[in-house]
Amino acid sequence: MKLSVEGVQKHGALAVLALVTLVGLLAFPGFRTVDNAGTLLVNAAPLGLIALGMTFVILTGGIDLSVGSVFVLGGVVAAWASQYGFVAALVVPLLVGAAVGLVNGVLVARTNMAPFIVTLATLLGARGLMRAVSTEGSTTYLVESQPFKTLGNGDLLGVKWPVWIAAVLFVAGSVVLNRTGFGQAVYAVGGNTDAARLMGVPVAATQIRVYALSGLLAGFAGALNAARLGSGVTVLGIGTELDAIAAVVIGGTLLTGGAGALSGTIAGVLLLGVIQNLINQVGDVPTAYQQVVSGAFLAVVVVAQTSLTRLRSVAPV
């Protein structure tokens, strides 16, 4: 009894994902096509990368609100840099994202400011930068580099590149978390910062690195998105940080840090994607109501997860 409850709680997002997917498969013919599955995955890939970085940040007990802005900034600078070729289109957004993340990390680790405030500031700052680069959104850079476009739209064995990239990074991220000293430091800092410090874990360095990683991945997600859309779209990324946080938390990572896994985050990201996809299947639901349904669904999922957690905590030890 206890084991199964624990299992369900740990893989709660996965269980809900399976259930929702099953309902979708049975109820909507449009949902159970290969094309639709491909679209769903490729749409989820950028959020996946952002949520990957967010998982690291939240595991340390922090939060990164700047990723939505960095995401859109990354897309715009990628499209702009694509005039100088493939490498520039890829590297510039990574550098920009990592730079913003580094600022976050240094401020959080060295000034003792709350991550919420620090990353709120960089959220505004990065959005401002994006507007400066795009002259108030009036300049839309088109992606000039053909190889870069292929990165967003090409496929291998029928699966689009962004999906492969996200999958590989999630596997790598999982290895980093579980099998490297840095990964252990991430869990230790989030689980008990004081203890981590006394046990000799480099707390500040760990914090700086997770925020830099989060910024880097958000910039990369922006670049991939620009490659896919063929231009640096300036109206994206509002509320993306909240989607990423939601995906991580639905995936079972504690918002207070110290416990969680990337497998849960994948499930969380896909769950959000499937919900959105199913709402699209229903057809003529106005966008405004789509959001209402999406929000309500999210609430239901979270309540279900919480009650499962509670079940576990009262289960006999």
Binding site: G191, N192, V201
Partner: peptide, 27 residues
């Protein structure tokens, strides 16, 4: 006790000096 309650007993014991194999922690 200044350890990390959410991490496993073994990981607490070895935190910062885990046994490695090919650069990765040998769990």
């Amino acid at each position: 006790v200044n350890l990390v309650p959410l991490m496993s007993v073994a990981r607490n014991l070895f935190l910062g000096r885990e046994p490695r194999r090919r650069g990765l922690i040998d769990t």
